[in-house]
Amino acid sequence: MTMKTMTATSTQRFALALTLGAALVAGLSACVPLVVGGAAVVGVGMVATDRRSSGAQLDDQGIELRAAARVRDIANDQMYVSVTSFNRQVLLTGAVGNEADRRRVEDEVSRVVNVRSVVNELTLGAPSTFQDRSNDLYITGKVKASLLDAKDIFANSFKVITERGVVYLMGIATRRETDRATEITRGVGGVMKVVRVVEVVSEADLAASQAANQSAAQRGGTGPAPVSNATPSAPSSSSSSSRVPLPPMEPLPAPGSAPAQPAVTTSPVR
């Protein structure tokens, strides 16, 4: 391993430790009804190596904040929802009291501007406990560290979310990378199940999208999202009630303006 590689790995580990520490404080200091999955910026290095375009990354932050505001407006004592957006696809995890609330949360989030699709993994029952959440944070840290240690996979290809021992992998990756990440995650202690919410692309498509993003970055533009494989949801006419500054939303490509891509793979692995 070269000195440059060792330095990069150490930097990533340090950023990971800071992120997990901040999440631990935020997630465990109080019983909050809603968690925003990825609004915090880890660092310039992490953003630069993300396979999403810079515009898509900003959109994901805006989507999470807007979705959080919508869910907060309808939240009740039986609702604990985590909202995570990746490349404009939203994953909902957590628990609600009944099926009506489950459908209502999905409906509210799906109407947020620029949300392409919603993967609803909310369960019915009591919210997770303090011990559940601390254990999930611990598992998430172990999975991220294991992916980072692997020599044959790019760890930043995946976002890791854990809910009561179930690990969700979100990202843009090839079939080989997805299978390898799944194998690594299944080997981490405490993982009950792995659910892949991955946009699977070919090696050629991945190389082309990365080249396009690099070219756009050099020109100072945001560039198109590297994958657009779902029909965009119609923009909502109502505005979000969020009171925090939101990043600009990059318009989605017009229907038919880009070739169809492989569909998102959502597959539980026991």
Rank of each mutant, 00 (worst) to 15 (best):
P259G: 01
N114Q: 05
A40N: 10
I153T: 02
S233H: 14
G62P: 00
P255G: 01
A258S: 12
E250L: 05
L206C: 00
I74P: 07
T185L: 00
T162W: 11
D77K: 13
L24V: 09
G221H: 06
D101P: 09
R116Q: 07
D101I: 12
V166S: 08
S237G: 01
A40M: 04
G45R: 05
A260M: 04
P251M: 03
P33M: 08
L122R: 07
G220W: 09
N229W: 06
K151Y: 12
F86Y: 14
E163C: 14
I74Y: 06
C31E: 09
E250R: 05
R111V: 07
A260L: 11
M170W: 06
I184G: 06
A39I: 02
V198A: 09
F130W: 14
G221F: 13
V264C: 06
G21A: 08
R111N: 00
G256M: 01
S117A: 15
L20V: 04
A204I: 03
N98E: 05
V47F: 12
V269T: 14
T162K: 04
T7A: 15
N120E: 08
V109A: 03
L206R: 11
E99L: 05
S54M: 11
L169N: 02
N229M: 12
V83E: 03
I74V: 15
S85Y: 08
I139H: 00
L246F: 01
V71T: 05
S240C: 07
